[in-house]
Simulated scan of single mutants.
Amino acid sequence: MDKEEETRAIRGALMAELDAINYYLQQGRLFNKEFIKKVHEDIAKEEITHFGEFLRLLYENSKEDFDYIIKGWNEASKLIGSNVDFPLKVENTIVNKNPEHPENSLESFVYNALQKRKIRKIGKIIKYDEESISVYEIEEKDSEIVQKNDSTTYNLQFLNVQFNIRSDLPLNKVFNVAYKAGLKYSNKEDLTLLSSHPLSLLKSGKRENKSDWEVPGNIANDIIKAKEEIESLGYSDITVILSPIIYSKLFRVYDKSGVYEYELLRHCCEIETSPLITGAVVISKDSFYILEKDEAIVEFLGKEGVYSTYLISGKISPYLIDKNACIIYE
């Protein structure tokens, strides 16, 4: 037998043991004599032990089966409403949300790439257990702020990247696939928070006209002006997100002073760059929340032929509590 045939045979033995367990228990109940019932029950328990032996063989021969078993266990736990750990310790099944992976494991390359996510570092992460967000209109008066009855519902964004790797190759020949998949997920998350979600920064923030940014000093002046405007509302902890092209223009001498524009900015706010925007976004971290129902995890989905399939997935949404605390220059 090859490995696949061995695995099928072990699964068949598991089925036979389950049939035997049910048979002895059902037949035992038909007898009137108590000692015959007891012997049947004892034999059924032995068959359960046999089932455990074959289960151990299955794990040794096909750990991939246990990825599905544990996935089903966890899904049933959610429906039952009781989270109980799977009674067997199985390595490399579903990656924990706060993983500590062995150095140079497949999952470590994915999570190293996920460290490239930029926009989540600007917001405040909040664990959010619902599938959607109800945003209510707000009316500001001189002496009060009123939350109106009218609301609009927005769904959290499900993000996923699937990748397939050859399981017959050593790690040093496949880690680039895992890393690129992590980078792709990072890009999707940044895009969701910046522009693609209805509540994203570029769709929720306040747009302002910029001056001529070809003139040295004007980029810094506009951003400092936006910072002061945001801080006048009571917000602090200001970050500016710049396109790489705009960022490169900061390394110009300002007004014959011998000082770069970059130097003017770095003392007043944090600076981030993103190729996903064309201008600049000035935002207070105090006003930007990131609602996360499902943190990014890596799951093993199964194996077909020589390919093993993995999925990176999560569920997230941006939430700007005050559009005036996010100023956009395009």
Rank of each mutant, 00 (worst) to 15 (best):
E4G: 00
T7M: 10
E17K: 02
Y23L: 10
G28N: 12
R29Y: 15
N32Y: 04
N32I: 04
N32A: 11
K33D: 06
E34P: 12
E34F: 14
E34C: 13
K37V: 13
K37I: 12
E41T: 15
H50A: 09
G52M: 15
E53H: 12
F54K: 09
L57N: 08
K71I: 05
G72P: 03
K78M: 00
I80E: 15
L88M: 11
L88W: 14
E91W: 07
T93L: 12
K97Y: 09
N98W: 15
E100P: 02
H101G: 08
E103C: 03
N104T: 02
E107Y: 07
S108I: 08
V110S: 14
Y111E: 06
Y111V: 06
A113G: 11
L114F: 13
K121M: 03
I125M: 05
I126E: 03
K127F: 03
I133A: 03
Y136T: 00
I138P: 04
E139C: 03
K141R: 07
K141I: 05
K148F: 01
L159F: 01
N160K: 09
N176L: 12
Y185R: 10
S186F: 07
K188I: 10
D190W: 11
T192S: 15
L194E: 06
H197E: 11
P198N: 05
P198R: 06
L199H: 06
S200F: 13
S204M: 13
N209G: 06
W213I: 01
V215C: 05
P216I: 01
A220I: 04
D222H: 08
I223H: 08
I224F: 09
I224T: 08
E228H: 02
E231L: 01
S232A: 08
Y235Q: 02
Y235N: 05
D237N: 15
V240K: 03
L242D: 05
S243L: 11
S243Q: 08
I245K: 09
Y247I: 00
L250Q: 01
S257N: 00
Y260L: 11
E263W: 10
H267S: 13
H267M: 13
C268D: 15
E270Q: 05
I271C: 00
E272M: 02
L276R: 11
L276P: 07
I277T: 07
T278D: 01
T278W: 00
G279D: 02
A280S: 08
A280R: 09
V281H: 01
V282H: 08
S284W: 03
F288G: 10
K293G: 07
D294R: 02
I297E: 05
E304L: 05
G305S: 13
Y307K: 14
T309L: 14
G314Y: 09
Y319C: 01
Y319Q: 06
D322E: 12
N324C: 00
A325G: 15
Y329G: 11
E330M: 07
